[in-house]
Amino acid sequence: MTHDILIAVLVLGALGVLFAVVLYIVAQKFKVVEDPLIDEVAEVLPGANCGGCGKAGCRAFAEACVSQGNMEGLRCAPGGDAVAAKVAELLGCAVVQGEPQVAVVRCNPANCGDQRRSNYDGLRSCAFQNTVYTGEGGCPFGCLGCGDCVAACQFDAIHMDPERGVPVVDADKCTACGACAKACPRRIIELRNKGKKDRRVYVSCVNKEKGAVAMKSCANACIGCGKCAKVCPMEAITIADNVSYIDYTKCIACRKCVTECPTKAIKDVGFPTPAVKPAPKPEAVEVPAQPVAEPVKA
């Protein structure tokens, strides 16, 4: 009996030693020399692997940071300035500060819910529906409502409004990684600066059709009339391809364009009161002293 136990112990022990030796040799032979800094940088990253930085994942981002030696052109949107500061400290380089951003959905369909013009009955995928036809609302540029963006979001920050069939961004959760913007086959979603006090003004339409055609597609469409551009004190608004665009680095959120827009295509977010048409006297309009600063490098 003792004999049996002894043999078992010896055999297993010998096997263990043998494997340990083999493992050691193999580990030495195939050793990959890697900068330990990469692990440290990867440690401070959020680890969501959202791909918002344009790299394959958080580790790839860390590798890029370390091989580059600084953070020029590299930014982890979900981590924001806090992570940027930590990474910069590890690398021993300057911190690149960025304006916090958020995703906005540039579509405000009029033909949704009961007003929709057809019934889509195929695969629930925007990318596929986009190859079939215009979508239920009838606008060839509008939201298709199948939620490719919702599926793409790693942070549970974008959801479908069940009544209107368009996605709604939860600004508190959104990290501006841009995954939704990439997933949208119609390029409706844009990353914009969050703005002071979370107040933003943007054109909620990307319809490039001529005014009259666009109006037929959707009552809330931007018709490219240019009234907003005329009224803007900061010259932040440009019209291209029959669509108006507000440059968020210049916009001061005065909301003159919101009241001016004939089709209500310009949306204001985060303001306590609805925009009202200013009094006829031009001097009555309050213009904040300083425009929102451009991203600065500290």
Partner: peptide, 13 residues
């Protein structure tokens, strides 16, 4: 299952 739709999407990708 909308197999043909899915395959078309896959082909596009």
């Amino acid at each position: 299952k909308p197999l043909t739709d899915e395959i078309r999407l896959g082909k596009n990708r």
